[in-house]
């Protein structure tokens, strides 16, 4: 075994502590008996049960999940189409510009995206009567616009690395272009679609700023609930909620990682 430098080890430990310390302390305090967040009053799971009775939080969680799922599904479809166009359409005028423009929402400040979408929705409603008011629909639409950019980037890199002759071989064997897409292209880029979906889902679950801009009185997402309740003081209930979210997200990420790793390994010898 090689001797590892103790300095390196301590730097590593410090790094991990920095990353995960806050999350772990949050998880630990979610099992705190005491209502005071900073005082340890013994082990208890009562905040989890209390969470189950909190209709406001449960409603917000359900709304967030619905928005995130619809957003992720639509973003995957649109993002894949955009990626196909960018990779497959060959050379055309303004291609480079288009490629940069697709990724713009990734670097644009959330405040600006939120504000511009709000203005758009308001003027759309005035002109066409749709979307009526603001709420779940507008949040979903807003999330799709920026999630799509992320999906496009993920899928595009996968498509660019895919051997073009696979599709040609399928065409050559008599499959029509639609059939080629569903029988050959889609299965091969599936891991990227799965990753894109998860990414879009997480981004949507995570978003506070844009949702605050385009949401209406009826629609409060989970991050909005958490944020507003924390302003009144951190409650152990929120800790419990956060713990649940962290666990679910970790499991999802681990599953996605495993899935992609296995697929990757199968495809390159």
């Amino acid at each position: 075994m090689t001797r590892r430098s103790p300095l390196l080890l301590s730097v590593l430990l410090f790094g991990y502590a920095f990353l995960y310390g806050p999350i772990i302390s949050l998880m630990v305090y979610s099992f705190n008996e005491s209502r005071l967040v900073t005082v340890w009053g013994g082990f208890s799971t009562k905040w989890y049960f209390e969470l189950l009775d909190n209709d406001q939080i449960l409603g917000a969680a359900w709304l967030s999940i619905k928005i995130a799922a619809v957003n992720a599904s639509v973003a995957v479809v649109l993002g894949t189409l955009a990626a196909m166009a960018l990779v497959r359409y060959g050379r055309f005028r303004g291609r480079a510009t288009l490629e940069t423009m697709v990724t713009a929402p990734m670097v644009m400040p959330d405040v600006i995206i939120g504000l511009s979408l709000l203005l758009l929705f308001v003027s759309m409603e005035r002109l066409t009567g749709w979307p009526q008011g603001r709420g779940q629909t507008t949040i979903t639409l807003a999330h799709i616009t920026f999630s799509m950019a992320y999906v496009t980037v993920v899928v595009r890199s996968r498509l660019a690395h895919m051997d073009r002759s696979l599709e040609e071989a399928a065409l050559d064997l008599g499959a029509r272009p639609m059939k080629v897409f569903f029988a050959i292209t889609l299965p091969i880029i599936a891991p990227a679609l799965a990753a894109g979906w998860l990414l879009a889902f997480t981004l949507s679950m995570d978003d506070l700023v844009i949702a605050s801009f385009v949401s209406g009185p009826g629609a409060t997402t989970l991050p909005m609930v958490v944020y507003s309740s924390v302003r009144l003081g951190v409650s152990p209930e929120i800790n419990a909620l956060a713990t649940i979210i962290v666990v679910i997200v970790s499991l999802a990420v681990a599953a996605a990682g495993l899935l992609m790793y296995r697929q990757e390994k199968r495809q390159q010898d």
């Binding site: 051997d163 002759s165 040609e168 071989a169 399928a170 065409l171 299965p187």
Partner: peptide
């Protein structure tokens, strides 16, 4: 179109469907 020609091709990279 390629899918309507009575011709088949063996590719240099073989292009076997990995899945």
């Amino acid at each position: 179109a390629p899918y309507e020609r009575p011709i088949n091709m063996m590719f240099q990279s073989y292009a076997l469907f990995p899945h």
